[in-house]
């Protein structure tokens, strides 16, 4: 762990602390001793290819799965022995938007607010519909929503009750570029308000765009963990290459479509120099 620089030392310890986490499915050794800490209020990206064990880590942290070995704590509460308490301070947004298609968007939000035993579920729902630009679609069944709208509703449902820790499991997998920007915008907004976000992703640019800290999960172990700057220092200084900077197809697409979702900025997407720096040790 190289938590020495640039991360402000938290007063109340890490929001999430994982030590020596192990999990096997029959013969498949998915997690082989995973360690990491997540600072309160930060965005932490668990980066890895398919099958690296990202979802398993999230399911253990969300109290849906028991580890075979090691410990995991959320706000100092063990996810196995204090599972009920942990559930009060977390929220899970799984790999597929877990929204109820037959209900309307508003009914989905009211349902979760009721299950979190909050007073005035209707007002909470209306607030979130406004925040996630879903007010116009509030009374429509979710089966009529686009992928991006579903994901926004999904994330909005996760925010009900203001859980201090949110898990986002591959929040943008399967989304079109515009929807992806919408989700990124929502995640940044969360962190700005002090929520701790742990997200898993297989997209390098997503981790780079969003995360304060990135851990690379590979074959069941964390093989690198640090800020983007720290990870870059793992490699020899970049050699200067002259590359003609073409706009990416995504830039072109977004420019001609002329829509970048819910007010997110197009300017963050013009850096096309990312991929050349990666070593090819990871078989993604």
């Amino acid at each position: 762990m190289s938590a020495d620089q640039s991360t402000p030392s938290p007063a109340r310890g890490p929001a999430i602390q994982v030590r020596g986490l192990e999990k096997s499915y029959q013969k498949l050794h998915v997690l082989r001793g995973v360690d990491f800490d997540v600072t309160p209020g930060s965005i932490f990206a668990l980066l890895g290819s398919n099958g690296a064990g990202k979802t398993t880590v999230v399911r253990i942290l969300a109290t849906l799965l028991k580890p075979d070995g090691g410990t995991a704590q959320v706000h100092g509460l063990d996810v196995v022995t204090r599972a009920a308490r942990v559930r009060e301070s977390i929220s899970l947004t799984g790999q597929f938007a877990a929204v109820d298609e037959i209900l309307t968007g508003r009914e989905n939000l009211v349902l979760v607010a009721r299950l979190r035993h909050l007073s005035d579920p209707g007002r909470i729902a209306d607030d979130l519909l406004g925040r996630f630009a879903l007010t116009d679609a509030a009374g429509r069944r979710v089966s009529t929503y686009s992928g991006g709208m579903r994901r926004r509703l999904d994330i909005a449902m996760s925010l009900i009750g203001d859980p201090p820790v949110i898990f986002l499991d591959e929040p943008t997998t399967g989304l079109d570029p515009q929807a992806r920007l919408e989700v990124w915008q929502a995640v940044r907004e969360l962190a700005r308000q002090g929520t701790t976000v742990l997200l898993t992703t297989q997209y390098l640019d997503e981790a780079e765009q969003l995360a304060d800290r990135i851990a690379v999960l590979h074959h069941g172990r964390i093989i690198a963990d640090g800020t983007l700057a720290e990870l870059r220092q793992l490699l020899p200084p970049a050699t200067v290459e002259y590359v003609e900077k073409q706009p990416t197809l995504e830039d072109v697409f977004l420019a001609i479509v002329g829509d970048t979702g819910t007010g997110s900025t197009g300017s963050t997407r013009t850096d096309a120099t990312v991929a050349a720096v990666r070593p090819d040790g990871t078989s993604s």
Partner: peptide, 13 residues
């Protein structure tokens, strides 16, 4: 299959 079950199970209900 849709993840609704897991969403509910990860909530304090």
């Amino acid at each position: 299959k849709g993840g609704t079950f897991e969403r509910f199970q990860s909530m304090p209900i």
